[in-house]
Simulated assay, not measured.
Amino acid sequence: MMTRKEFLEQVMKMANLKDLKQADEATRAVISLTKLIIGPKLSQKIAKVSPPDLREGWEAIKPAYPKKPIKILTGPGGEDADIREMVPHLQKHLGVEIKVEHISGFWGKIPFEKFQEMEPDGYTLICYTFPRSIIIEQMGEARFKAKEFTPIFAWSSGNQFLVVPSGTFQTFEDFLNEAKKRTLTGAIPIKGGINHIAGLVLAEGLGIQVNWVPYGGLTPSIAALSRREADFTISLGGTLPPWVKAGKINILAMLPDKTGGRSPYFSHIPTVKELGYDIPPITTRHVLEAPPQTPSHIVKVLEEALSKIIRKSSYIEWARKNLVLIDPLGAQTLFKEKEEVYSYIEKIKEKLKKEW
């Protein structure tokens, strides 16, 4: 059985190197890159079948990626809290520091335009609520292509709800009857955001007219309802319970998502489909992506790390407390969903722009 020294001597001879030190350096570089390409599972199998001396050397060498701190760009919203909860586990798994950079103007096009030009080396990533990038690109003039970003992983999805002030509409039917009589006022965080697009799709499906008023954020939008400045808003579920408990708002219906069922956290709320309306689903997800043309072996390292983290009991418990739906999509599946959503937004964008 070959020892580590005998192995290095063979490398030195075959590569025509001058000494064992050069052979060791060359071997470390090749093994490091090999580990990056094949991933941890196959690497562990190779270690198990290697002689003890060679196994020790193999296990001591880290993969070629990552070798330095990784920066994750994000902005205000649920994705920020979500990725920060995962970062300690990600640092432990990857063995490098993970820095989360909260950037202003994240709901606009500038962060995505800058990200388009980042080096595809795996050291700058972006975490956001999908499909924000596609909406921003399709609904305005932008110098980036969301479909060119490299998908890594999606791990949670969110349900959107139709929310009204307390003491106004008791049922979805009440809301719809009033909407048929007059133009309603819809509170939204920003024009062109996910809530706005979901609302536009809903309004078109219901055949109603809406005057959309931006309030600069989700909490201000819900606050506007509590003051009865607006007739309704479209909101993710995570922020709603305190307002419901305080008697400020009512939740009338859940907008459709790809599952077709009710939210496990709001199982008493009917879906729009249950109420008789077939509205196209727009599923929101927290995603992590890399710049265009990031190599697949880097994606694989990050994808495997994230897929393990979401199975940890501590993250599952955090997700439950924060009403986060764990719904993982690997890189390839996320790519396919991006293609579907991209095509859908592209088809309806001209119609939506008229309502802008």
Rank of each mutant, 00 (worst) to 15 (best):
K300F: 15
P270Y: 06
A64Q: 02
P52C: 11
E79L: 06
V30A: 13
E289L: 08
E355M: 14
S343W: 04
T183L: 03
V341P: 00
V299F: 00
I135S: 01
Y215G: 00
K48E: 15
V213Y: 11
G330K: 06
S221W: 04
I126K: 01
Y123E: 02
E229H: 05
T74W: 10
K180A: 06
S343V: 06
L8G: 02
N322F: 07
L325T: 15
F144I: 00
R320I: 00
H89T: 15
E289P: 02
M118G: 02
V87W: 03
K336F: 14
H196A: 05
D82L: 15
V163Y: 06
G167C: 11
M12L: 14
D53M: 03
G260S: 04
E304N: 11
D82I: 15
M86T: 04
T185Y: 07
A198W: 00
S50C: 02
G247A: 07
H196D: 10
K21Q: 15
R262D: 06
R311D: 15
K321W: 08
Q10W: 11
K258M: 10
K41E: 15
W356K: 02
M139K: 03
K71S: 10
I37P: 11
Y128S: 02
K312T: 01
K258H: 13
V100G: 06
K180F: 02
E229C: 05
L94W: 13
I136P: 01
V30W: 13
G199F: 14
K45L: 12
D82Q: 08
E337A: 00
V213W: 07
I103Q: 11
P131K: 04
H196Y: 12
E6C: 09
E97V: 13
T27R: 00
I249R: 01
Q293V: 03
R4N: 06
K191R: 08
E85I: 09
E204P: 04
